[in-house]
């Protein structure tokens, strides 16, 4: 039979499936191959891999000054004027990373990316901020996606009154402008649960799930009427199985693509909240926080360029990486587009 199969494959002008394809299954293998051969996705994935590496290796790249609170950015004094990259640490120097001497041959730790106003070390903020960005982006996206998927699919599948009620609720949330609403809620929550990452995260989730719900609802509505769903009903497939086997797999991909792109933009929103001072406590490693340190020096960026350039570039690259991966996912996950590349 196996030999026969191979012959059939050859007749069709295809190679017989290789080891990896047999391990992963045809569809997963195709998606993987698509991701690996598409230059856009390769760049995006590479960038993400770098960010992931930085996040994991943070204690090695930038050994924390306070081991019990590694996210606290170390500061070198309290002076207002930022110091340029390469300046040596003078006070309260955190431990030197073990590779520092081997690479540079020097004995003292320097501010690799300079210090921001208040002598916060930008390098530490960027490295440990990567962890914050990944955590914040993933947690918010996963929770908003789950809430949105549940609301959207329930709304579309049951229709009628359920749909009307749920969609009116969604509209109430959409009626608020996103950023001011998230700011307000975050500011209200801060005295209740304390300053930190949670108030802005909760605020973004509360006002952010509506997009997924609407997106998924519209896709479920269109897929629900396709003939293969009718065919499944005729066969006698149960409602739950129709939903999970026939409708969701065909309706979820726009949502997945949306989610991967969303991670990037969420981090921007979060940074915006931090920049405005509603978010992590002062000194917490977070890119938005670093940018907010630059607020007073906006007019002299010619001289103090590094206080904006490093965190800003990292933020842009992070968003770009997720967008590229999202784009590539969209192309790869649609089986009808296969063979076009």
């Amino acid at each position: 039979m196996a030999k026969n199969n191979t012959q059939q494959e050859e007749l069709l002008g295809r190679k017989p499936p290789g080891w990896l394809e047999r391990q992963l299954g045809t569809e997963a293998y195709r998606a993987l191959r698509g991701m690996a051969t598409n230059p856009i996705s390769v760049i995006g994935t590479l960038l993400l891999a770098i960010f992931l590496f930085v996040a994991i290796a943070a204690p090695v790249l930038a050994p924390p000054a306070h081991t019990n609170d590694p996210y606290q950015i170390p500061r070198d004094g309290y002076g207002q004027v930022p110091k340029p990259p390469g300046t040596e640490w003078r006070t309260r120097q955190p431990p030197l990373p073990f590779w520092w001497k081997a690479v540079t041959g020097k004995d003292n730790w320097i501010h690799i990316m300079g210090t921001a106003s208040g002598q916060w070390d930008i390098y530490y903020g960027v490295v440990w901020g990567t962890r914050t960005a990944l955590r914040v982006g993933l947690v918010i996206t996963i929770i908003t996606a789950i809430v949105g998927i549940i609301v959207g699919s329930v709304s579309a599948y049951y229709g009628g009154t359920v749909d009307i009620v749920l969609m009116r609720i969604v509209e109430v949330f959409i009626a608020f402008p996103f950023l001011p609403a998230a700011m307000t809620l975050s500011a209200v929550l801060t005295p209740i649960i304390g300053r930190g990452l949670f108030p802005p995260m909760i605020a973004i989730i509360v006002f952010g799930w509506t997009g997924v719900a609407r997106l998924l609802r519209s896709d479920v509505l269109s897929v629900r009427e396709r003939e293969y769903v009718l065919a499944a009903k005729v066969i006698g497939v149960s409602d739950a199985r129709i939903m999970f086997r026939h409708i969701l797999p065909n309706a979820i991909f726009p949502t997945l693509v949306w989610a991967s792109m969303r991670i990037g933009s969420l981090v921007i929103t979060f940074a915006a909240l931090s920049f405005l001072g509603i978010g992590a406590e002062v000194g917490y490693a977070d890119w938005g926080q670093l940018l907010s340190f630059a607020r007073d020096w906006m007019t002299q960026l010619g001289e103090y360029w590094y206080i904006v350039t490093f965190p800003g570039t990292i933020l842009v690259l992070f968003v770009l990486a997720w967008n590229l991966v999202g784009d590539a996912l969209r192309d790869v996950l649609d089986p009808r587009l296969q063979g076009s590349r």
Partner: peptide, 13 residues
């Protein structure tokens, strides 16, 4: 039942 559109009546996944 057999359906009209052979492109829409089979689940692509």
């Amino acid at each position: 039942m057999i359906f009209q559109d052979p492109y829409a009546s089979l689940n692509p996944r």
